[in-house]
Amino acid sequence: MSELLKVKNLHKEFGKNVVLKDINLSVEKGEVVVIIGPSGCGKSTFLRCLNGLEEIQGGVITVDGLPVESGKKEITKLRQKIGMVFQSYELFPHLSVIDNLILAPTKVQKRKKEEVIREATELLDRVGLLDKKDYFPRQLSGGQKQRVAIVRALLMHPEILLFDEVTAALDPEMVHEVLETMLKLAKSGSTMLIVTHEMSFAEAVADRILFFDNGEIVEEAEDVKGFFKEPKTERAKKFLRTFEYDSALYI
């Protein structure tokens, strides 16, 4: 296995407010890393740093050995290697589904339109949305939009995919279809970094769990089942307990 993403001593602050402290992480090709933690702990900001949407104040991030530096010209090249899917989908509302999909591959990577359309059609079919090809985003449900957003990221052939709470804005019955899509991706060997609050999904998909709190990695676990059964740190225990309590409420 080869190292794809490396983060060394990452430090990020907004003014005086330190949001990420001394983060170190190494992700290998094909690995699925799930990041969990309470709201406001810095997990989304961490993902945004990885593709240069946020400037960092210290440390080094490399993808495929190349440094991620926001504001530099090379960042557009690097971002093609890093797909990102957002909580609020962020499809382009003025473009149809198919035009959303082919925009970046044809304009950024200068690939042939017919070839991209062929691939897009194939991927849409795989996520069960082929019949929505010519729809506009406003005509789709949240779950459908999110699957289109995933396909849009995939079409750039990224080497690593970042998912930022992609099911958090969805109605419960839509969550499943999106998670299913992601699970398939994970099984097909994609390298993924996933921020989520879906604990059972995290347990099913993760090769490794990172538990963030207060801008730090508090616990890192390769034994995913073990982590969810019996986390080592007190803070992780407390965090997981809030979910048990939640689910108990709904029974």
């Binding site: 949407l53 971002r79 797909g83 382009f92 990221a153």
Partner: peptide, 16 residues
């Protein structure tokens, strides 16, 4: 702003 970020994430330049 997040529309811009979404486009940038796809590797587009600011101009694109």
């Amino acid at each position: 702003v997040i529309q811009t970020e979404s486009a940038l994430s796809l590797g587009m330049t600011k101009e694109q």
